[in-house]
Amino acid sequence: MTGFLALLSRDLRLAWRRPGDVAVVLAFFVVATVLFPLGIGPQANILARIAAGVLWCTALFASMLSLDRLFAADYEDGSLDLLLLAPWPLELAALAKCAAHWIVTGLPLAVLAPLLGVTFGLPPEALLALAATLLVGTPTLSLIGGLAASLTLGARRGGALLALLALPLCVPTLIFGAAAIETLMTGEDLLAHIAILAALALVALATTPWAMAAALRQAGE
């Protein structure tokens, strides 16, 4: 556990000292989202209808975009070899990296999304629901993305490949995340959707660390 916390705080410190990396991801999220009203047109009813889906998709892209450096820096400077040799489970190390990624991107995305939702004309309760679903759903994206990042470590054309691997696996989260906001219009139970998102996150939490560790061990060989 000390190893987990040490690695987590190290990654957070690294992100803190280079705030530009995070800012670029968030800027991408804002710009990509803003393109949709420009492309589709400013009709308020259409924008409010598609807001949840658009914000979820752009959040998904933004979190993929930041993932290809997740393990790459450690792989290049040799820290990964030390992690492999460390006397505590590699699964925990992978989990710590994903947790740091989530704190640095998932959390700000969840905070930022409601602000963008305002420009799409979402009602206040939908903004709250959007933040809540992103809060529960983005850990899954970080974990699945982390898995794709560890699989593509050292591969040619890693970035695009990462997205190709991760995006189909993220479909369930996207579906339930975007649909949760529509429940407010159809009068269904929002909590049920959030519970399913949480279940997806738990499944990812229980399975991906093993796969990530297996992939990282191969990268280290």
Partner: peptide
């Protein structure tokens, strides 16, 4: 398909 062919070392691609 893309992942298995993305490495210079084919063994790594296979295992990934």
């Amino acid at each position: 398909i893309a992942l298995s062919r993305a490495y210079d070392d084919p063994d790594r691609g296979d295992r990934a």
